[in-house]
Design a protein around this nucleic acid. Structure first.
Length: 948
RNA sequence: GCGCGCUUAGCUCAGCGGUAGAGCAUCACCUUGACAUGGUGGGGGUCAGUGGUUCGAUCCCACUAGCGCGCACCA
């Protein structure tokens, strides 16, 4: 075995072996456990958030698989309509071509090509991350089967009246020239202006002043509204205004929507270009005057002078013209929220167009109930509130997109523009009784990608066919997702799952936080702070990292700043940490926090942890190879029993952590057990046994003869051949158990080590080729409390001596003489039974009990309960230093005692606190008093020595 | 405006009605035969502030301050 762990030497080989064994497929029996992956964009790449999420899902999947569940982690990708179309269009533009030139068929073909080219990236990344998804079941939202499910759902909803077509005001992206759903609008506060404009009354009696942030829309005004109770304007209601820059007359109307306190109390009403105004217009029967083209330039409805101008150009022109005609009263600075497309960043325009909608209320109601009555549980619970808030105020969902890449809407139009919906054209004709020769053309639009994603938990399992997978794995067990897509995806899956698959799509929704960079910033290409998870696995040079972060920027002027920040944070690039270290880091971040800062130092510590584990295994294998490991008659020492107890406690914590989706707790339990308990203590204790002279005649360090009447270490139990066997068995079995427990989080290093350790532990035949991922997950058993108590004594003894050594600067190699004073029967028993550990781990000669009446020499002192451990100072210890040390101990004990005495002196405390709490404090107080008394005595003695 | 979250060691974060924890960083000693990606020991916190509930509050409640997020917005 290598002296240190090198991840890249094993990871890809191991993953390939798993795949070759088809180890990720459901086993076909046992209780089902299923997670569907939140499908990433097929042409994208995995970012840190994906890697984090995949780590969680893989850990859950491997954990359940090992526990004997029939486990399916369903992989796949979605077609990401807008994002993908944008990418391919950009490619075309770069080549001097356009989508329109190419035509729809050729363009879509081109997108498919791009999908084929780039679609493998994600699956390669997932493989490198160790994801145990069932690749044989990989799905894509545009697959034939899933497409069929999409069309099926659309048609069924349509036939039930839950999908309808209508001319409505929708959020329009003038760059993409498509409608968007409400959710795809990112409202952003931006500085702007409030322009006050005079609208003259037609009958000459002055003017009303309206305030607007969008003066160009006045060309589409249909009225000016005032509040019905506003005394200032009451008399004017019903009179007419001459709309500036146009020849039109518009009425003054009264509507309670108007806030009399804002601006002048008069509002221009533009029903075709503002959602609120649209409502007002509906109430008052106002005309809808659409003045914009799909590109958001002014159309024929505008006066000739403005036609063809872009909206922002038009704004300038309108303002200039108003100024000229003296109608612009004033201009104020004003902050306003601007709706922008979340993909393009373009200012969105409310635009009147024909679109398809899902009538959502009938779907939302059962979906709300499913969470209310606990059929679906959010973890953490608080997210259900967010879900309810949105669901209870839900609006109809605009599902049509004016794109080419996606599921084309299964509706056909005759020449009169009447639509017919069907599974395909023939179905539409049949259902609607249309003659075969009636010319029909299919709707040009495609469906929102989220419409197909909403079906993911059942469409991937074969729906609408009644498949075995669907029956086995639906409802799925848990959905693992970020809170940013609760509305987009989670809510819609619940609605459509209940509607079409007859049950909730998942029992639990585990909502995790978002991975941010070291400074708490969201990672994004434009900020230049993204990290490719594989660059942490494999490492990357500074030059390559800089290149990755600064090429292809939308805003190239950001380049130098990004370069500077990157050089500062990663002066030497990123080291290769391996997948396991990265996964351990991700798991340790899986707290309940919403924002998770990614800290490279954590990865470093988990890389070290993997190396620690590696070396522990190396040690164990060195010690068990060729050794007799038969169990019969093996004797188990205190340390053997103790590590078993610790292991059981760890397994209980791990099980609880998984049950609560607290992978940070899982990692902590494993880390602490493996490093602190197993490596720092148990392995050292085992060395004490294995290196002691034993019945097998193992080479052991000869211990000096002990004082008469004292038990000699070589005569202690724990060094017989049977005890050696017990220790070797415990070493290897505990390690083997720990490997299985760690496997869901750190799959590679555990597999590699398990292949060598398991046979020695009697777990697997060397030739069987079994994988740790199919071994049973270790179950916790009762903890042996006696062993924990005795071990506590041993540890306190050792720690006490080490502390003296550390604080007195005594070289570790120097063996110390130790005398024991005030030992009770229990101390004597423990010394007799476990003395071997003390000599080795504390670096002392066998401790000698002071005879009755024997004078103790001046010594540094460590307290183990009542027992005093004396390290004679002669020639070793500086009295002044010892006094300092003692004073420090004393003041600490004194502080503690004061606190506890205060409590115990309080009669209310004695009367009200639970008896066990009082008893515990009393015991603690007694302990502290003893300790202080001993320290005082010791101080006095050292003082006396110094005074001599 | 409505809703939610956060504030604990220098940094990143756990925690919890009953003696404040981890990793990293830091200081001292140690090339000990699994591991210097290591070992041993040490230092470091009025748990944001105020008030309340309680025998007891870092933890529960209220308010305040600061930071952040979501939703909805007055043109």
């Amino acid at each position: 075995m290598d002296k240190s762990f090198s991840p890249h030497a094993i990871e890809q080989r191991i993953y390939a072996a798993w795949e070759a064994q088809r180890a990720f497929a459901p086993r076909g029996h046992g209780q089902p456990f299923c997670i569907v992956i939140p499908p990433p964009n097929v042409t994208g790449t995995l970012h840190m958030g994906h890697a984090f999420q995949d780590t969680i899902m893989d850990a859950l999947t491997r954990y359940h698989r090992m526990r004997g569940f029939d486990t399916l982690w369903q992989p796949g990708t979605d077609h990401a309509g807008i994002a993908t179309q944008m990418v391919v269009e950009r490619q075309l533009n770069a080549a001097g071509k356009s989508r329109l030139e190419l035509g729809r068929t050729a363009f879509v073909e081109r997108v498919w090509q791009w999908k084929e080219e780039s679609g493998g990236v994600i699956s390669r990344q997932m493989r490198r991350l160790g994801a145990s998804v069932d690749w044989s079941r990989e799905r894509f939202t545009m697959d034939e089967g899933l497409s069929r499910a999409v069309i099926d759902v659309f048609v069924r909803l349509y036939r039930e009246g839950l999908v309808y077509r209508g001319k409505r005001l929708v959020n329009w992206d003038p760059v993409l020239k498509t409608a968007l759903s409400d959710l795809e609008v990112a409202a952003q506060e931006e500085p702007g202006h409030l322009w006050h404009i005079r609208y003259p009354l037609t009958d000459g009696g002055g003017a009303l002043t309206v305030a607007t942030t969008r003066p160009e829309t006045l060309l589409g005004d249909a009225a000016v509204a005032v509040h019905p109770d506003d005394e200032r304007y009451r008399a004017l209601i019903g009179r007419k205004l001459r709309l500036p820059l146009t020849e039109r007359e518009i009425p003054i109307i009264a509507d309670a929507y108007v806030d009399p306190a804002f601006g002048s109390g008069c509002v221009k009403i533009t029903p075709a270009h503002d959602f609120n105004d649209y409502e007002v217009g509906q109430r008052h029967g106002l005309p809808l005057i659409n003045i914009f083209t799909p590109e958001a330039a002014l159309n024929e409805a505008a006066p000739p002078a403005y036609r063809g101008l872009d909206r922002f150009e038009a704004r300038k022109r309108v303002l200039a013209d108003l100024e000229t005609s003296g109608l612009l009263e004033k201009t104020e600075d004003h902050k306003l929220t601007v709706p922008r497309g979340d993909r393009t960043g373009a200012v969105l325009e409310p635009l009147l167009t024909d679109q398809w909608f899902v009538k959502i209320q009938p779907l939302a109601d059962p979906a709300i109930r499913a969470v209310e009555d606990g059929r679906i549980r959010f973890i953490p619970e608080q997210w259900s509130k967010v879900y309810f808030d949105w669901m209870r105020n839900i609006k109809d969902w605009c599902i049509s997109r004016q794109l080419w890449w996606g599921h084309r809407i299964p509706a056909w139009y005759d020449e009169a523009g009447k639509h017919y919906v069907g599974l395909d054209e023939a179905d539409a004709r049949r259902v609607h009784g249309l003659p075969a020769d009636l010319p029909l053309r299919q709707d040009e639009d495609v469906l929102d990608t989220w419409f197909s994603s909403a079906l993911w938990p059942f469409s991937t399992l074969g729906w609408p066919a009644d498949t075995l997978e669907l029956r086995t794995f639906y409802p799925t067990s848990v959905l693992v997702t970020g809170f940013d897509i609760i509305f987009f995806w989670v809510a819609r899956m619940i609605m459509l799952g209940l509607k079409f698959a007859g049950d909730v799509p998942f029992r639990e929704v585990y909502v995790h936080g978002l991975i941010r960079d070291h400074d708490g910033q969201k990672m994004s290409k434009s900020k230049g702070n993204v990290i490719d998870p594989l660059d942490i696995v494999d490492g990357i040079s500074l030059a390559d990292l800089l290149a990755k972060r600064t090429t292809g920027l939308m805003q190239p002027q950001m380049g130098p700043a990004i370069e500077k920040a990157t050089r500062k944070q990663f002066p030497e690039g990123i080291a290769a940490f391996g997948t396991d270290a990265l996964r351990l880091t991700f798991a340790s971040l899986a707290t309940q926090s919403r924002d998770l800062r990614f800290d490279m130092a954590r990865v470093d510590s988990y890389r070290n942890f993997c190396n620690k584990l590696w070396n522990a295994a190396r040690f164990v294998l060195m010690n068990v190879e060729g050794a007799n490991l038969t169990e019969d008659g093996a004797q188990y020492s205190l340390a053997d029993r103790w590590i078993g107890a610790q292991c059981n406690a760890m397994l209980a914590r791990v099980a609880q952590g998984f049950a609560e989706y607290r992978l940070d707790a899982v990692v902590n339990a494993l880390y602490e057990f493996i490093w602190n308990d197993y490596c720092d203590w148990y392995v050292e204790l085992a060395k004490a046994v294995l290196n002691a002279p034993g019945a097998t005649g193992d080479a052991g360090e000869p211990e000096p003869a002990n004082a008469p009447g004292q038990p000699a270490p070589s005569a202690l139990p724990g060094v017989s051949e049977a005890a050696h066997r017990g220790t070797r068995l415990t070493l290897v079995r505990t390690l083997e158990t720990a490997l299985r427990a760690l496997h869901p989080i750190a799959p590679f290093v555990t597999e590699e080590l398990w292949q060598r350790v398991a046979p020695a532990a009697g777990r697997a035949e060397p030739e069987a080729g079994a994988s740790i991922m199919q071994a049973p997950f270790p179950q916790s058993a009762a903890v042996d409390a006696d062993s924990v108590r005795d071990m506590r004594w041993v540890m306190d003894f050792i720690l006490g001596v080490r502390q003296i050594r550390g604080e007195m600067d005594i070289a570790p190699a120097r063996k110390l003489d130790v005398l024991l004073q005030n030992a009770n029967a229990e101390d004597r028993r423990r010394l007799a039974e476990h003395g071997l550990y003390l000599t080795r781990l504390a670096g002392v000669h066998p401790p000698r009990l002071l005879e009755q009446g024997e004078n103790a020499p001046i010594a540094a002192i460590a307290l183990v309960g009542e027992l005093q451990v004396l390290v004679p100072m002669a020639g070793l210890i500086d009295p002044a230093a010892e006094l300092t040390r003692l004073a420090k101990r004393r003041s600490r004990a004194d502080g503690d005692l004061k606190k506890i005495s205060g409590k115990l002196g309080n009669t209310e405390f004695l009367a009200n606190a639970p008896p066990e709490v009082v008893a515990k404090d009393q015991a603690r107080a007694a302990e502290l008093r003893t300790e202080i008394a001993q320290l005082d005595r010791q101080c006095a003695r050292v003082e006396a020595l110094r005074a001599q």
